[in-house]
Amino acid sequence: MSTAIRAGGRRHTGRSRRDLAAGAAFLAPTIALIIVLRVAPALAAVGASTKSGLPGSLAAPTFVGADVFARLFAKESFWESVRQTLVFNILVNPIQIALALALAVLLTRRLPASGLWRTLIFLPSAVPLAGSTIVWGIALRPDGPVNGALEILGLPAQPWFTSPDQVVFSMIVLASWIGIGYWMMFLIAGINDIPPVYFEAARIDGAGALRTFFSVTIPMLRRPLLFVLVADTVANFVLFAPVQILTSGGPEGNSNFLMYDIFHKSYELSDPYEASAELVVLLVIMVAIVAVQFRLLRTPEGEE
């Protein structure tokens, strides 16, 4: 008995080693690329955030320690940028995920032509971001077609991207139009993966649609939902093209999200040092938020 176990154990270890070696071989190119393209530049950015030099100067920068951070933290405009980034993300992520989830549930019901609806809802995410940004920029122009439609309905025209009060909302509309269909696809796949017996059991127990949704769909969807939540949050934190193309951070700096500000400082103002410091701040914020999301959606101990 004990020999058998030991023999089995040895065989198992041998196979594990081979598995490990094969796994490592398959992963090696990816890991090498991640190190060269991601980790190395990140470390370079941390290094750059401790240096300073005249903007764009070809002279070697000098080491200044935490001075760049001190200068950055003393700027009112930086804190405004942090605040607007957080406001945008606190609003856009729940809205996108709630709508994507609602659509996913709706489109996994037996609806006529549900494939067509799925395709139509998914289509915007197949359009390049810059393209949909330009289309929305024209649609939401003060004298554009959306306002034309509002006026036909007897509603007042809105300033959209040109108003400091509406620019964040307009960005949410744009980002959601693109994002919802994309995230919906992951959730539809997740819902289709739930074994139908759970829904049958719920039906036999007399659970209504709402109860089924909260007691079966949501718990069984935890893993795809976590992925969508994290990936969507990251995507929205680094949303850049619409700001660059439509608002350049305005009006009154209200769409000057950190991601755009980093690009702006690094390239348009040629100050990669302060941009790197700001990038480190953005990374810290993102990691903190993603860590919280993991805690919130953690699988209870021992449960599969």
Binding site: P41, V234, S276, L279
Partner: peptide, 15 residues
């Protein structure tokens, strides 16, 4: 996901 997306930016901001 976080590293990929966020560090892509690092490439932009590298000194």
């Amino acid at each position: 996901v976080v590293t990929a997306a966020a560090l892509a930016l690092a490439a932009c901001a590298g000194a």
